[in-house]
Simulated scan of single mutants.
Amino acid sequence: MNVNELKFIYEGKAKKLFEYENNVLIYYKDDVTAFNGEKKDNLIGKGKINKKISVFMFELMEKNNVKTHFIKDIDETTFLAKKVEIMPLEVIVRNYTAGSFCKRYGIEKGKKLKMPLVEFSLKNDDLGDPMISDDAIIALDICSKKDLEHIKNEALKINNILNNYFKQFDILLVDFKVEFGKNNNEILLADEISPDTCRFWDKNTMESLDKDVYREGKGDLVDTYTALIRRINL
């Protein structure tokens, strides 16, 4: 399908959205960014891999009673999704210490947390997606208390599903970021679930199998993602 013949809606760092029969086509680009866009490249094949993983993950969520915006797969780079109004929150679930969490609290990398931790950041590139507390979210009327509790519960449910899936391949789910949107007042998991938005480590070597390879200049990102999908039998 030629997405360029469709009505353009929005372009993000890694995806483009187009209108299609009252829904949206989500097209995955080969672009990769880090550090709020300070580092960026175009890596051939990266979009296809992330789309393939995201489709699989959305289907996995649906099978486990997590409602998503996913409708159906279209081709190598696009899938059809319900049109949602994205809530301006990034929902982060952490199982191990890594990334900005270590810097924020002066904690060593790789420490397993006593329980999964749900955090929120305000989805705002100009502000650098700052962390925001539950009370601030409610006080600023970004989200109702009821909806926020629902999102938290869904995020923890997603964490459990992903942990159970990846542990069979000796892969640790370190942390991940998800987004939610509303469609006819129903909250749906949206955006993507991929190595761009998750941290995966090899259980035995603690080697990164995600975008940290690009962030830290530790290897070829497309090769890393390709090895990951082969490992999980996609």
Rank of each mutant, 00 (worst) to 15 (best):
G219I: 10
I74Q: 06
K51D: 06
M61F: 12
D147Q: 09
N95A: 08
E216I: 04
D223M: 13
D125A: 06
K15Y: 02
E11N: 05
L80G: 09
I49W: 00
I151L: 08
M115R: 13
K182V: 14
D191I: 09
V91R: 07
S121F: 04
D134R: 13
L113F: 06
K111S: 07
I171M: 01
R94P: 05
N164A: 10
R199P: 04
F56E: 08
D220R: 12
I92M: 13
R199I: 04
K29W: 00
K15H: 02
V118R: 00
N159F: 02
L80Y: 04
Y214E: 05
K182N: 14
K211H: 08
G37L: 09
P88E: 11
H69K: 11
K51L: 08
S144C: 11
I187K: 11
I74Y: 04
P116A: 11
C143W: 01
H150V: 14
G181V: 11
L17I: 11
L162Y: 05
E119T: 10
K218G: 01
C143K: 11
M1A: 14
F58W: 06
F176W: 01
F79Y: 15
E62H: 01
K13I: 05
Y27S: 11
L172Y: 09
V32C: 08
M115K: 13
L189G: 09
A81V: 09
E62P: 03
